[in-house]
């Protein structure tokens, strides 16, 4: 079995700006600066054996928008909850579709729900919402009533 602590150490050693916190035997939280997200994703996939992107989504906080990548593996149960913080004014981050083709739907959904701009995504049209829908419904300031 792969050891979560050694994986976390290798991530810390490679990227000085990434903060990693091991929660328990199968979960770790990593905070990544938004401009390094592609490098971190490539490193996780190619050098850490994380070959599975479970999910990708956003979360709206008072002062920031977070993108949360849940990166796991097909052969063990370890999940790296990888977060990156984006400013509310311009929530833009590189798309990870080139690392994981599966991210395409997830990024389209996060884009329409939170207004996050995934740079380099081939087609950021609405996925679940109608084409002419205005606003970003999962933002806290969205008025739905």
């Amino acid at each position: 079995m792969t050891d979560i602590n050694s994986l976390a150490e290798s991530l810390k050693k490679k990227f000085a700006d990434v903060q990693v916190e091991v929660k328990d035997g199968r979960r770790a939280v990593a905070e990544v600066p938004s401009e390094q997200i592609l490098d971190v994703m490539y490193f996780m996939r190619d050098s850490m054996g994380r070959d599975y992107l479970a999910s990708l989504s956003g979360a709206d906080y008072d002062d920031r928008i977070e993108v949360i990548y849940l990166v796991g593996s097909y052969s063990d149960g370890i999940i790296f909850i990888t977060k990156t913080k984006l400013p509310k004014g311009n929530p833009a981050v590189n798309s990870v579709v080139e690392v994981w083709p599966t991210a395409s739907f997830h990024e389209r959904e996060a884009a329409e729900m939170f207004g996050i701009i995934f740079e380099g995504h081939p087609n950021l049209e609405h996925l679940l919402l109608p084409e002419d829908f205005e606003g970003h419904p999962l933002r806290k300031d969205y008025k739905w009533w």
């Binding site: 999910s55 989504s57 979360a59 849940l70 599966t102 395409s104 739907f105 999962l138």
Partner: peptide, 16 residues
């Protein structure tokens, strides 16, 4: 819940 994200398997299978 402040934020609740659901990951659906069939969503990915439709994409595939």
């Amino acid at each position: 819940p402040y934020r609740l994200k659901i990951r659906s398997p069939a969503y990915i299978h439709i994409q595939s």
